Amino acid sequence: MKIYWFEAQAPRRVVALAKHLGITAEFVQLDLMAGDLKTATYAGLNPNMKAPTLVDGELVLWESSAIMAYLCTQAGSDMWPAHAPAEQVEVLRWLSWNDSHWQDAVGPFYFEHIIKPKFGFGAPDRAALAEKVEGVVRLARVLDEHLQGRDFVACGRLTIADFQLASMATDWRETEMPLASFANVVRWLDGLNRVPAWAEPWPTAQTTRFAA
């Protein structure tokens, strides 16, 4: 199994999950600035020319939620409830909410404060972010109310929905997301940072494989 990645929010979900589950794989780091995503070879695997991508024998998967579900199935983990339809629907609801709403709201903060400095795209444009605050606040209120009395987003335990929603919001303090007044969201995000694989997800130059 190979997992192609670089340091960004979608690959983080996958490599953190692989580490958490003890998945054995070869982790292939892509160099965004060198154009690795746009090579003919990589585009043949992932026509979107994004990451992550998983290759396992003849199977090629892209989109982080699909890859995470596959990894859980391979590991027999209920972080994706493959044998519990009602729980599947619950996880899918929050994966969809992330992709349709939450990601679009918090993504600009992540881009301006994490991606731009990391890849030399310039300084954060705080003026452009000012108009995005209202959208984050509106959705954070939904998530905060849902997390009242809950430690996890779905199924009463850690699932791939937590990794999906948290990926761009984990660094909310550094990215100046307006989340400080949402105590349940902050509690949830801080709690995930106590999961070792989530707190330190990246493969290192010395360690390109995670083994169980």
Rank of each mutant, 00 (worst) to 15 (best):
M1V: 00
I3M: 02
W5F: 14
F6M: 14
A8Y: 04
Q9K: 02
P11W: 02
P11N: 03
V15D: 08
A25T: 12
V28E: 15
A34C: 06
D36N: 14
L37E: 05
G44D: 03
N48P: 00
M49Q: 15
V55T: 12
E58G: 12
A75Y: 04
W80Y: 13
P81A: 03
H83G: 10
A86D: 13
Q88D: 11
L95M: 12
W97P: 00
N98S: 13
D99C: 09
D99E: 12
Q103I: 00
A105L: 03
E112N: 11
P117L: 15
K118T: 14
P124H: 10
P124V: 12
D125G: 08
R126Q: 13
R126N: 15
A128C: 04
A130R: 14
E131A: 15
A140Q: 03
E145N: 06
Q148S: 12
G149D: 05
R150H: 12
D151H: 07
A154K: 01
G156I: 00
A161L: 02
L165H: 02
A169Q: 04
D171G: 12
R173P: 11
E176R: 13
A183M: 03
V185F: 09
V186Q: 11
R187M: 06
W188K: 04
L189A: 02
D190S: 14
N193C: 08
P196S: 01
A197N: 14
E200D: 15
P201M: 05
W202M: 06
A205K: 11
T207H: 08
A211C: 14
